[in-house]
């Protein structure tokens, strides 16, 4: 098995879930209704937990401790897609981003249940159950707010247009795409994107939202290579603010 390809793949999944989990946790105490505070918080907990599990797999492959890897790297060493690091903005953007991201994550983990890398396949079976709830939550809100009031529909439409170029960046290919596919570690970003498109079309088709014409959209890439927006480094600085004050200390 090409270990470099595998590690690269695990890092991008771990970084995605860590960063989106961080953003979702920012809704704690700030949600539009208490029930949404609670929902975003519980999804964030699952996501941070998933990233810990992935960093633990990486640690078993010889990488540093999960805490060190998560809290001590700088932005250019992170391989999350840029979509996950964008600020929460209003609830409409957060829920649209959550829908676009979670749909891809659910499909990705589902594909990972067939991975030839057995520890990942095992983990994926467990994570799938958590993601079923995340997907249900996202779909429910998108379907409802996407057909409720004029304001909710137009807010979601605007956010959808804003988020879409970044969402396409989820599927930025890694330099090891061929190896991943050939060794059955993962079926590849192209396959994932096809599945994702039909999944989001199905949900959005039940709403009054219009999917932007993808042929006219320039995907925002770079995240998978460590080229990020200006939003990631401040997020990481905040995340590691306490951790970095006392290197080596236990908390």
């Amino acid at each position: 098995m090409n270990e470099q390809a595998l590690k690269e793949f695990l890092y991008k999944m771990a970084d995605d879930t860590l960063i989106i989990g961080h953003r979702n946790s920012e809704w704690t105490g700030m949600g539009p209704i208490l029930e949404e505070d609670i929902a975003f918080s519980s999804m964030a907990q699952d996501q941070i937990g998933q990233s810990l599990a992935l960093f633990t797999l990486l640690h078993q492959l010889g990488e540093q401790e999960p805490d060190t890897v998560a809290f001590m790297r700088n932005a250019n060493q992170f391989h999350n897609c840029i979509l996950t690091e964008l600020p929460n903005q209003e609830y409409d953007f957060s829920i649209v981003r959550h829908f676009l991201y979670t749909t891809s994550a659910t499909l990705r983990w589902d594909m990972c249940t067939h991975s030839s890398y057995e520890p990942l396949a095992q983990l994926a079976k467990k994570v799938k159950g958590e993601l079923r709830y995340h997907s249900l939550h996202a779909r429910t809100w998108i379907q409802q707010l996407g057909s409720a009031t004029e304001e909710s529909i137009s807010r979601l439409q605007r956010s959808l247009e804003l988020a879409m170029p970044y969402a396409l960046g989820i599927f930025e290919e890694s330099p090891f795409e061929k190896e991943l596919v050939a060794q059955h570690i993962f079926e590849g970003e192209k396959r994932l994107m096809e599945k994702w498109l039909s999944a989001i079309e199905e949900v959005l088709g039940k709403t009054q939202l219009v999917i932007p014409d993808l042929k006219l959209i320039q995907p925002v890439l770079g995240g998978r290579k460590g080229q990020h927006s200006e939003h990631l480094q401040p997020l990481l600085d905040e995340m590691s603010e306490v951790f970095r004050t006392e290197p080596g200390a236990e908390w």
Partner: peptide, 21 residues
């Protein structure tokens, strides 16, 4: 900031009421 969400929840087209937590 959450007002429009709560307004939408009151819309007759909305049938999400119980939290999914």
């Amino acid at each position: 900031r959450g007002r429009w969400v709560r307004e939408a929840l009151k819309s007759p087209k909305m049938n999400y009421v119980t939290p999914l937590a």
